[in-house]
């Protein structure tokens, strides 16, 4: 049996019915016969199954008939699944992994799409899943993938990284379409950290845009921000070149330029003087960068990794500094080589 045939006949579980989870289910439905989407409650499942859309999160996308939504995890894993696409926010990752662990059989290939780390411990999602689930073959999918654009069928590319070649091959087989390219990587640490760190810069980018500067300021932010990402990622064991790829530079450009990005919106509204709790309440879904900024700031300080922009974002969120204060503080830092 070839790889493609195997995955065509396979059953896939998608854990998490948010916008990106729903899009991943739709991508997989092109390559796999049977896709099961695990959602929060019966009502959401009923709506998805009857309307073939997920109106709460991504109303514009039509789901094909081989995607079924369930609220009971037993139904999702019934008869065993071969692939699991994990699309939950990092804040609930460990708790749900613990709860769902008994449903796993062990042969599953698990690929997660979470762009964040555990608060405080800085454990990456692939590490959490390895610790909590009875499976070994785990990978990550990450890249410049704004859910709405992929849902509309616009061309896009992503990276699947794992230490297991067969996880990468599975990711490519499950998710590739003629509009969606899947690249392979083995630097799991780099890909996960790139996806996590860019959320901090997305907040910075949103805040900067509120001041209505031109392209120079934005380019300065992204380029120096990327330097920060590399510094931090390499200190934690990632490879520098990963940050120049789709999961690093690519995702940074998409997230920091698009008003669709939740983290960008948080930064933008903070800069306009709104209060964080109000913003988070009205956002309705998770902005990973808010939590990440705190954890990364604290860790970088402890380890002596220089991250001035992250520090600025941290103060913007948690110390009540205005974006003008942060901006000026960054601009008057001592002159230094690039």
């Amino acid at each position: 049996m070839t790889e493609k045939d195997f995955w065509l006949k396979s059953k896939i579980a998608v854990i998490g019915g948010g916008s990106w989870g729903t899009v991943l289910a739709s991508l997989a439905s092109n390559n796999c016969e049977n896709v099961r989407l695990w959602v929060r409650d019966d009502e959401q499942a009923r709506v998805i199954n009857s309307t073939r859309t997920n109106p709460a999160y991504i109303p514009e996308m039509q789901l094909s008939a081989n995607v079924k939504a369930y609220a009971e995890i037993e139904r999702v894993f019934e008869g065993g699944v071969q692939g699991v696409l994990w699309a939950l926010p990092s804040s609930v990752c460990r708790e749900l992994a613990r709860k769902l662990a008994p449903a796993f059989g062990g042969e599953e290939i698990v690929i997660h799409a979470t762009k964040g780390v555990e608060e405080g411990t800085l454990r990456r999602v692939s590490e959490i899943l390895r610790e909590e689930l009875p499976v070994a073959r785990i990978g990550v999918v990450s890249g410049p993938n704004l859910a709405n654009e992929v849902a509309r069928g616009e061309p896009a590319a992503t990276v699947v990284a794992s230490r297991f070649d067969e996880v990468i091959a599975a990711g490519q087989a499950m998710l590739s379409t003629d509009r969606f390219r899947v690249y392979a990587a083995d630097d799991v640490i780099g890909v996960e950290w790139a996806g996590t760190l860019k959320n901090i810069l997305a907040i910075a980018s949103g805040a900067l845009d509120a001041l209505q500067f031109g392209w120079n300021a934005r380019s300065m932010l992204l380029t120096r921000g990327l330097a920060e990402m590399v510094r931090f990622g390499v200190a934690l064991g990632g490879k520098p070149e990963t940050f120049l790829g789709l999961a690093g530079m690519g995702d940074l450009l998409a997230t920091c330029s698009s008003p669709l990005s939740r983290n960008y919106r948080v930064g933008n509204r903070l800069a306009k003087g709104e209060k964080l709790p109000d913003i988070l309440k009205s956002l309705g879904s998770t902005a990973e960068g808010v939590r990440t900024a705190k954890s990364v700031y604290e860790f970088a300080k402890l380890r002596g990794i220089e991250m001035p922009i992250t520090e600025g974002v941290y103060h913007l969120i948690h110390s009540g500094y205005s974006v003008q204060d942060v901006m000026s503080a960054l601009m008057v830092r001592p002159q230094r080589p690039e």
């Binding site: 662990a101 008994p102 062990g106 009875p134 070649d165 067969e166």
Partner: peptide, 24 residues
Amino acid sequence: GPNGTTVDPVKWLTTLGELKAQPE
């Protein structure tokens, strides 16, 4: 396995539906 699960080695050694050695 973690969280009170047991691991069936056969499942961890199954690739594309087949129990076999896979050097990588």
